[in-house]
Design a binder for these strands. Structure first.
Lengths: 196, 196
DNA sequence: GTCTATACGACGATAGAC
DNA sequence: GTCTATCGTCGTATAGAC
């Protein structure tokens, strides 16, 4: 089952709504999902949904922000556990692969949606804390001499680009094997592209 | 001005509709664009739009397929002009960068939309002829000994992943300089990641 | 082929009882 | 806090004149 936050609280109405909505959004997209659909899928009445959230966009916004927060705390943990850019970025890719396999809905919604179309007031994913943190790790690797000096966005594209494409390929059903079977190879080549 | 096909015919009603629609779709997305919007933007009445296309999805479908065809013919040209995987793939990346700079609407619509959400019956982009061709170029490079032998999707992710991320970064407004200023560096690192 | 006017349905959102 | 019933809006699509 997909959890929106990673606390082990018993499922309250909020969570029921968010979980059902994430499933529908990742399956059909925001615009193909009606509030009636959410009511049916979650078993919560329309009235209750509007009692818990301002409107449909409010539900999407709650999902987006809680997932951003969850991913960010995971990346922060990675940053504090590992000390080199090599180990940090490797752990990031590994985590993203794991998340894709365990909770494809989450990745589908986070990596593979055009949030700007239905959440115009939220911060874009590419400027969000997790993405900033991923670039920060690359930057520190350039300063420590592990990674060739170049534009940070460019280096990040080189280092994460292949892995992110493998994730979308997985979500598109192009890959038969689970993602982690590609992890070592992807990482080897990605690192090779930027290391000194 | 954005052209859907690259023929130099005078603008007929079909083209007026397609051009205006592509602009709106890339700006606001399929679902935030009403047929009224298309009518206003194109200067063609709603009745005429429905005379030329079966429905709104039919307009999107026409855009999608004509752009696929156009890109595919460009990639085929590249394949016949260049003989090594190195030169072919480099030309592909160069072409995609150029297209992003010249006609961002096209790339926004092709690379940055969830077509499955509004074109459920069309072939997914990842299985389309252009993408197949891009992978084919990589495959032939493995057979000729230019590129390390590995899963084709994996190699393609390594070789094109960074460039594709730079394109989305450009569309997201993250890059100040035009894409072609990054071309040499991106290509150098991408190629380094897979070459023997 | 192009237009205007309109029918029809679906959806988001609210009211108000329990 | 949860529910059912309903309202108003908007968007797609069609009818029919020119």
């Amino acid at each position: 089952m997909v959890k929106i936050n990673n606390k082990q609280t018993p499922l309250n109405t909020d969570q029921q709504i968010l979980t059902a909505t994430l499933k529908l959004f990742s399956e059909k997209g925001y615009f193909n999902t009606s509030v009636r659909d959410i009511s049916r899928e979650s078993g919560v009445s329309i009235g209750s949904i509007y009692h818990h959230f301002k409107d449909k966009e409010g539900v999407a916004s709650a999902i987006y922000n809680s997932l951003l927060e969850r991913i960010n705390s995971e990346l922060s943990e990675i940053q504090s556990v590992h000390k080199t850019a090599h180990d940090r970025c490797h752990a990031v890719v590994s985590f993203l692969f794991e998340l894709t396999e365990q909770e494809p809905d989450v990745m589908e919604f986070m990596l593979y949606s055009k949030h700007r179309e239905f959440l115009p007031d939220e911060i874009p994913l590419c400027s969000s804390q997790p993405f900033e943190l991923m670039r920060e790790m690359v930057k520190s690797g350039m300063q420590s001499g592990e990674i060739e000096t170049m534009d940070v966005i460019l280096a990040s594209s080189c280092l994460y680009g292949a892995a992110l494409r493998m994730i979308t390929s997985k979500l598109d059903g192009l890959l038969e094997k689970p993602l982690y079977e590609y992890l070592d190879t992807i990482w080897k080549h990605s690192w090779k592209s930027v290391c000194i």
